[in-house]
Design a binder for these strands. Sequence first.
RNA 1: GGAGAGAUGGCCGAGAGGCUGAAGGCGGCGGUUUGCUAAACCGUUAUAGGGUUGAAAAGCUCUAUCGAGGGUUCGAAUCCCUCUCUCUCCGCCA
Length: 441
Amino acid sequence: MLDLGFVRTNLELVEKKLRERGQDPAALLGDFRELDLRRRERITEAEQLKAQRNKLTEEVARLKKSGQDASAPMDETRALKTRMDELETAAAESETELRAILTRIPNLTRDEVPVGSSEQQNVEVKRWGTIPEYSFQPKPHWELGAQLGILDLERAAKISGARFAVYWGDGAKLERALIGFMLDLHTREHGYTEVLPPFMVNSKSLFGTGQLPKFAEDLFRCTDAEGLVPGEYRDNDHWLIPTAEVPVTNLYRDETLDEAKLPILLTAYTPCFRSEAGSYGKDVRGIIRQHQFQKVELVKFTRPEDSDVEHEKLTRNAETILERLGLPYRRMLLCTGDTGFSSAKTFDLEVWLPGQNLYREISSCSNFDAFQARRANIRYKPKGQGKTAFVHTLNGSGLAVGRTWLAILENYQQADGSVRVPDALVPYMGGQRMIESRAGA
RNA sequence: GGAGAGAUGGCCGAGAGGCUGAAGGCGGCGGUUUGCUAAACCGUUAUAGGGUUGAAAAGCUCUAUCGAGGGUUCGAAUCCCUCUCUCUCCGCCA
């Protein structure tokens, strides 16, 4: 969420930034200026009346105390009441209208973010690793997984439906090894603290990180709370998390953090659940796009002046995983049209997939500025200043485990269909160096 | 699931219809004293939103906020209703 006062005084800049994202400022902002003006008028009016009422009730108290008749000011206050209720309702209405606009405006992208309408205009920042050459035709992971008997999409469809996967034997073990490897690296070498959050959150949390109210259709909602109105926030509803970003960032919702403790670095392993509404027919083969996938997430809370440096570090932390695993990748700076709703600047890491002969997103590292902090009310008290200020929040996948799993299959496949275990992962596989076909599944 | 108790400022804790944004204590900040530390003493110490003065820093003023939302009343932290959360006991359960 942007600051109301900021939008008021920088309306032209906001409009320009919205256009750069490919959004229609008129549609998003509506009659912002008018609403804002009306809101303040109504508040002023309502508060003046309240002040008047407060004076009168004080008068009543004084008269009663001295044993005098207080019926005159009492009647007057009663007469005031209808008008006051009207004004109060009107002021609250304006507040709601304005807030509805404000909560649907995406974050402003940084000036260094390239202007573009689609991923075609994303800019490649760097490339790492050499693309392996094969003496045979490399296979996509779904073929490898099926042949090895470690990936079972048919039975997953039976027990759960499309876009789910069952991992058997070494497949399940590889997933577990990756989780342990990533968490260990981030906690031991990168300074993150591991947290294990709930996999369900309430809608206030989803509002805090920006998924609600705009993106409800991308989420799975548990129907335990009856009479729920979408876009309405309550404490007792449950949604499956689409990313650990939601529970972890919201850990500090409505809190004021100690500046000395910043930056706070947290990492969390969680499953992630996404409805993938609107992506029918996209990535239907393999496990690229699933309703449930596992992810190790990196989250940071920083002072505003540190967020750019911490963004670069966080991206490097994610890249390090790929490098240790020997997976070739490239870093993309997302253009304005491809940058997420809450983000001011995003780097995507794309891993090379020889089985499909393309680069594929495996991590997304974003700096949200104060956008989420404002929505979630996460603040700190800068030294030497009386005023509290909003922190900056950042996060990135470090990494998406399912996509790392399939990247290893495709990059480390052998001519006979077996898969070599990357050296860094061998200890996490109990010393195992090869994944070979085994009957049994 | 059943029965009960509770939720007040950074923390502890009073208040039980009117001058209470809220006593007292702790903590924090500023100061006095002091060779330094400590102690003592004095002062100060919430957030948000309007209006207004100012170039700004900031000031003045009003409004709201005692878990959340509604109600009663001239007036609610205080009374009533609903909800959420926490604690205790019973039941069930990984």
